[in-house]
């Protein structure tokens, strides 16, 4: 039973590391054009959920479909921004070169990027405010700048759905605002954006959709309807509001 109106549909997804379930029987239906936060405590399986959806991890069970078709056939519709710490930033390459990698998927095997791909990459760099740093070796960028480069690499993929793993981790306020503005722009253009997010304070301000996750899916839906104490307590195991106001 596939409902083509959902941008992302996850059914019965279960992932385990060494017999211990990390994600348990996740059903997740994300409508098109939302900006969704995935929230949950450490070890809740937020990154794992994204990685399992993207096929980086092999789930024990479950299926993922994008616009009603299996994910494998829809890869070009999907872009991914990994955690900044997942790569070695001392790798011998430039900011522009990293962004160009976003075009590799469209190019396919063997074919090299041409001026067209380079132009698109420069535009993406400009969009994230990093054009001046295009020839900079990536280790000489600040954490926020590296995050912007990663965002530009995803933008250049020109996808319909964006998965981002903690894009605000370790970035300053300016970069955070710059990134969230780009994400809101993406939503305005009808794209679907899924973000693993840690700062609960900013959820109502940044996002219109939210998923509470703690190994199992606690709740998913519009922020206005479900971002409440009840769900926060169920997810984090403490009365969140009381804990914050202490």
């Amino acid at each position: 039973m596939q409902n083509p109106t959902y941008a992302i549909q996850v059914d019965d997804l279960t992932v385990a590391y060494n017999y211990k379930p990390v994600l348990w029987d996740i059903d997740l239906h994300v409508p098109e054009g939302v900006l969704m936060a995935i929230v949950g405590p450490n070890g809740a399986g937020k990154s794992t959920l994204i990685k399992a959806i993207l096929g980086i991890l092999d789930p024990i069970a479950g299926s993922v479909s994008i616009y009603g078709k299996p994910y494998e056939k829809q890869r070009k519709q999907v872009a991914y921004v990994p955690q900044k710490g997942s790569v070695d930033w001392d790798f011998p390459t430039t900011a522009l070169d990293v962004v160009m990698m976003g075009t590799y998927g469209q190019l396919g095997w063997i074919k090299r990027p041409s001026t067209k791909e380079k132009k698109a990459s420069l535009e993406a760099l400009e969009k994230v405010g990093m054009l001046a740093f295009k020839s900079r070796q990536i280790s000489q960028l600040s954490g926020g700048q590296q995050q912007r480069v990663f965002l530009a690499r995803a933008l250049v993929q020109n996808a319909s759905i964006y998965f981002m793993d903690e894009p605000f981790q370790g970035v300053d306020a300016t970069t955070e605002i710059a990134i969230i503005n780009i994400l809101k722009e993406l939503r305005k253009a009808g794209k679907t954006v899924v973000v693993v997010h840690h700062d609960l304070q900013t959820v109502p301000e940044y996002f219109d959709w939210v998923t509470f996750l703690n190994v199992k899916k606690i709740a998913t839906g519009p922020v206005k309807e479900i971002f409440n104490d009840d769900n926060l307590t169920k997810t984090y195991g403490i009365n969140y509001k009381v804990a914050v106001n202490k």
Binding site: K51, G55, K76, Y80, P82, M101, G105
Partner: peptide, 22 residues
């Protein structure tokens, strides 16, 4: 030379390479 692009991206970011369909 043939797989230059593929080698480079795998060296830098293997997970991402996978999501691109390689």
């Amino acid at each position: 030379l043939l797989f230059w692009k593929e080698f480079k991206i795998l060296l830098f970011d293997a997970d991402y390479t996978k999501t691109l369909g390689f």
